[in-house]
Nucleic acid binder design. Structure first.
Lengths: 208, 208
DNA sequence: TTGCCCATGTAATTTGTTACATGATTTA
DNA sequence: TAAATCATGTAACAAATTACATGGGCAA
């Protein structure tokens, strides 16, 4: 059997692949370093697992032979442990990344929008304030993305991560525009509510 | 003690609030109906819990006195069970929704971008194809959002859900533009890779 | 009469978080 | 020498999914 035809696909959660992905760039690193790296770049378009989960995934990856670790100090001293990806790991990761069915649609969990959706429970002023706070926060995030881009840009090994970060930069710009448009829509709603005066508790229409 | 001052905040997962939110619109509905509704609208800006979890959350909400249910048939016959929000539930939900600290930044889990980030493991052609598939899928999603908007638009009780869906429509349009820009960037990368010829395995720079 | 949609629920399992314990190294 | 950061790990728990079991009603 050829190596590209492992009929039994490794079933691993996306987090495991993301951690292995972090290891797929040149160099060896500790779980701690991986966490910091995830916080400053992965999190913008995917997400940053808890440090305890990173350690757990690293152990699993090592068991599977996808990663190898070396202690810096002597055994038993709980010293720094640096991980590197193995050839088998690189191959498995490439196989997973090429599987487009695996990817599925992007998942968005937008707390602000959930609250807008529940706008009938809040004061209009409160809603506008929430969108304003969201704008502020998003500007901060955008600055963080730009820092990450600056850090990564120009390094040949990081051309693809840079691409992802550039996408993220544009994504944050879009998020700002979306929020502005939302404010406008909110104003429009307030206008229409001016005259009617009735909160309309008629028959419930069918959702769905 | 006034009802608006329960000093002990109810700690509930976002899913519980989302389910209660579904109940906050006029009418009584079954868990099954809630699931369908979540699939066709909530999922675009938040996410749609598994049906088994919806049932679990409904039980919890009822225990807390935030929702009440009535069987359609006689007891013990596992008949249809319709849920409605209670006054206490509405109040708790309003309190949660107004808490802006609770909201946190939006979370995005973008499988395609994770794969772009790992672009060094794939054929350039494969990457382009993946973005193409993403464009296709996003167009389909956009159509689904528009259907939902059409369904909700004009119904007075649903003005805020309609707002959220409009936001989602624009968000999907932005997603399409982002993907087009990504294709362009991918082309740019391919151009630069033309001459060098070396896969550069020099010193590992420090990520972070 | 077969299959699909409606409808509810349980059980097992996985995934992921927070809180905690521990100690080395660096910096003020 | 005190505090911050680096670094690894365990334990308890919460959140969420998948698979499964059950059965009524309706349409081809």
């Amino acid at each position: 059997m050829t190596s590209s035809q492992n009929s039994k696909k490794q079933e691993l959660p996306p987090t495991a692949w993301a951690v292995l992905g972090l290891l797929s760039f040149p160099g060896e690193r500790t779980g701690y370093e991986l966490k910091k790296w995830a916080d400053s770049s992965l999190r913008f378009f995917y997400w940053s697992p808890a440090i305890s989960q990173i350690y757990a995934e690293l152990r699993r990856l090592e068991e599977l032979g996808y990663a190898a670790s070396a202690r810096s100090g002597p055994e038993e001293t709980r010293a720094k442990r640096r991980y590197a990806i193995t050839d088998a790991g690189r191959e498995a990761l490439a196989g997973w990344a090429a599987d487009t069915a695996e990817a599925g649609p992007p998942v968005l969990k937008h707390g602000l929008l959930l609250r807008i959706w529940l706008g009938h429970l809040a004061e209009p002023e409160r809603l506008r304030a929430m969108v304003g706070e969201h704008l502020e926060r998003t500007r901060g995030e955008l600055a963080a993305v730009r820092e990450a881009v600056e850090h990564a840009d120009g390094v040949p090994q990081w051309s693809f991560p840079t691409l992802a970060l550039r996408w993220s930069e544009r994504q944050h710009l879009a998020e700002l525009e979306l929020a502005e448009a939302l404010l406008t829509d909110l104003d429009g709603l307030a206008q229409n509510r001016q005259s009617p005066g009735r909160q309309a508790d008629g028959d419930a229409p069918t959702p769905g």
